[in-house]
Design a protein around this nucleic acid. Structure first.
Lengths: 296, 296
DNA sequence: CTTGCAATATTAGATGTACTAAATCTATAC
DNA sequence: GTATAGATTTAGTACATCTAATATTGCAAG
């Protein structure tokens, strides 16, 4: 039994006429008549009393009419809900990002995206790294932006950009006078680092070790904000991407001094579910991400 | 979109597998896959995420799953209700009868009918004549039993039987001594009749007039029961079918004296909707009615 | 009761849809 | 990587469903 048949019967019942219902449904009168008979054959019961005009419904027909009404009503509700979902899913890109990527750059990306896809909507959520992975795995986000991205069973990584790491110091620190530093300039200095289990810290440790530099590990935190505060208060120096200090640099609270030979970078990656087929809007945003030059 | 597709999708969603759902619905895996794609094409949206196994529903798919669940639930309710209606309509004959036919004979008919159609049910309703017509017109009764049946636009009449009319008297009335009466025996007697607008009364009037008999019309009522009471209390005599006095005769409250030459009859008819197609059980009961000899 | 009109049912032929089986592709586990 | 279960694609066939034409039916007017 098809929805066309249900719609047709609804109209037959309402108009008490096969031919009117046929016209309403844009089929021939013959098709409508055959369709009605097919339903009756399926249900093995007479739905209309053909011995009188206008046609009358049998009690089975009335029952079926109620059924048709309810089903069609439910179908309408479904179509409405589906329309909403379609707009939401096909009209918006859901991006989950770590704080340190998002806060410093998303504004610009959002503006560019709004320009080239004015009907689309960009929904960015800033989360802690592990929550970004979870959001992508659960398909709650189309794309995720993380540092030191690692592929998993469910997740594919697209390398995105490499951010140059610089030495972060207070403007009142001696190193603040320099425009370039060498790694050995950090020798013995109090150092504010990340927790040891974070990839960025392992990268920094390796970088310093390979260059024979030993710092005085004063404190370590699991997030950038705390490190920046500590550096600003002259607890020590640190190493981090230039980009994420831009605000504090503007306020004169921090300074970033590049290495003379820049070869420490923080890799950023775009993650998504394996083999995910992006809809038009998501694909457009992904393209935008890939074409934008690595700013700053 | 068909109910088969809806059932199939429900199973695909529940089992997260096309092949299992295919097996449950006794179709090939290929058919199930094509069916799923057809639904997605119809709705113009992806319902399942094929990039992971086991398959996962998209948000549209979840919406559609709810829709399927509701529709199938409604369908089950319909099937149950339909089963009941089918039993009621195909397993029972609904008969509407006037009191004077029904009370005196239905018992016997019911017994015979129960013998030859043990699974069937006979639903007899005793109504005033005009209500019998209305019940048949509204298809609330398959058959109607009335006296002096008149066809209408909606109703066809099948003549059924002719009941001999006799003189009804109290056992204490002088006429009660006779075994036969002539019409002129009623000359000048106090007479209890029916209301003048009833066909039976017009018949009686014509019968008496044609035979030059004038009675003393003492009272008239619109129903038999009152007439019988009046006759029993010796208010006067009356004329009515023998059959409907049987109970009172048995109780010694009334007597029925036939005319020497029986030529006054009350016609009984079976009425039904024009061109009505009877189902098996109704047809069987109609056949039974027609074959039963006119008792008494 | 007959006749004419409007509506429904039926028939025949063309077109489409939905199935199966076989081959191919895909996701996952080893 | 290879193996395997499971999903899709393809090709061919059977079965549904449509339209147009024709036959029947219900109803109402003469």
């Amino acid at each position: 039994m098809t929805f066309e048949q249900i719609r047709l019967f609804k109209d037959i019942a309402a108009s008490r006429s096969v031919s009117k219902a046929a016209a309403l449904n844009s089929v021939s009168q013959s098709a409508a008549s055959q369709s009605l008979q097919e339903i009756e054959r399926l249900l093995n019961v007479a739905l209309v009393d053909r011995s009188h005009r206008p046609l009358e419904l049998t009690s089975a027909g009335k029952l079926f009419q109620d059924f048709c009404r309810d089903v069609l009503r439910r179908r309408e509700m479904f179509d409405v809900a589906m329309g909403q979902v379609r707009n939401q899913t096909e009209g918006t890109v859901r991006v989950a990002s770590i704080y340190s990527v998002g806060l410093s750059e998303m504004g610009e990306l959002e503006r560019k995206f709004a320009d080239c896809m004015p009907d689309a909507h960009l929904a960015v959520e800033y989360l802690r790294p592990e929550k970004v992975y979870r959001a992508v795995e659960a398909d709650e986000a189309d794309l995720g932006l993380v540092s030191y991205a690692e592929p998993t069973r469910e997740i594919t990584v697209i390398p995105w950009r490499e951010e140059e790491m610089v030495v972060a110091v207070s403007p009142f620190h001696p190193l603040a006078q320099k425009t370039r530093v060498e790694p050995h300039d950090l020798q013995g200095l109090p150092f504010i680092g990340f927790d040891d289990d974070l990839p960025i810290q392992r990268d920094i440790d390796r970088f310093l070790r390979e260059r024979g530099v030993e710092v005085n590990a004063a404190f370590h935190f699991d997030n950038l904000q705390m490190i920046k505060e500590a550096v600003a208060h002259q607890v020590g120096v640190s190493i981090m991407p230039m980009r994420i200090m831009l605000e504090e640099i503007g306020q004169g609270r921090l300074m970033g001094i590049p290495f003379a030979k820049p070869d420490l970078f923080r890799p950023l990656g775009i993650i998504h579910r394996k083999r995910k087929r992006f809809h038009k809007v998501a694909q457009a945003f992904l393209d935008l991400l890939m074409e934008v030059p690595a700013a700053t």
